[in-house]
């Protein structure tokens, strides 16, 4: 290197260092990605996305638990009284207000299908228990009504609704 080390030369050198460092950083990030991505649900898990349930044997007033994607799904065949309670409840007093009509399929008021996982910390609530005739979570005392809405306790949200459809009067497909 000659004695005339100009600023231009210095900046060219700096550019080389910065470019190398930047490309190297991109390379490291690219190398890390597959190792993060592999933790996602794999293709065989994703494929198990639908469960078909025959609901004809479920008697009025009975709650049946089926499995969908490894999670419990409550299928509740509600009685007249339960439907009435759900429809007449005071939305204003709820933590996560939602009319009952939004939680069932039109014309199928007697069938409530919810994901049976407490929205607090993931326990499975017990059916026909608690002050609202719905569900009661034994872990931390969350209470849900006959529409699966949160009414008391620490849980922030209503029991979630899975995607499902009636393929006939007696069959539903979840997922």
């Amino acid at each position: 290197m000659a004695h005339t080390e100009t600023s231009q030369k210095a900046s060219r050198r700096d550019f080389l260092y910065i470019a190398t460092g930047a490309v190297g950083a991109v390379g490291v990030a690219g190398m890390v990605w597959p190792f993060i991505s592999q933790l996602q649900p794999d293709a065989s898990v994703l494929a198990l996305s639908t469960t078909e349930v025959d609901i004809s044997p479920i008697a009025e007033g009975q709650i049946v638990t089926v499995q969908w994607r490894g999670k419990p799904i409550f299928i509740s065949h509600r009685t007249k009284k339960e439907i009435e309670e759900a429809q007449k409840a005071d939305l204003a007093s709820m933590r996560d207000p939602q009319p009952d009509a939004d939680r069932v399929k039109p014309g199928k008021d007697e069938w409530l299908v919810v994901i049976g996982i407490c929205t607090h910390l993931g326990c499975v609530p017990l059916g026909h228990q608690g002050a609202y005739d719905g569900w009661f979570c034994p872990c931390h005392g969350s209470v849900y009504d006959t529409s699966g809405r949160i009414r008391q306790g620490p849980a922030p949200l209503n029991l979630a609704l899975p995607p499902y459809a009636f393929t006939s009067d007696t069959k539903i497909v979840i997922g």
Binding site: R13, L16, Y17, T20, V23, G24
Partner: peptide
């Protein structure tokens, strides 16, 4: 894509290394 990337990075590293060792 990986091979092209590594060729570019190797080139940059080579010149950086050469620069550092030049004296």
């Amino acid at each position: 894509q990986v091979v092209i990337f590594l060729i570019v990075l190797s080139g940059l590293l080579y010149f950086t290394k050469k620069k550092v060792w030049s004296k």
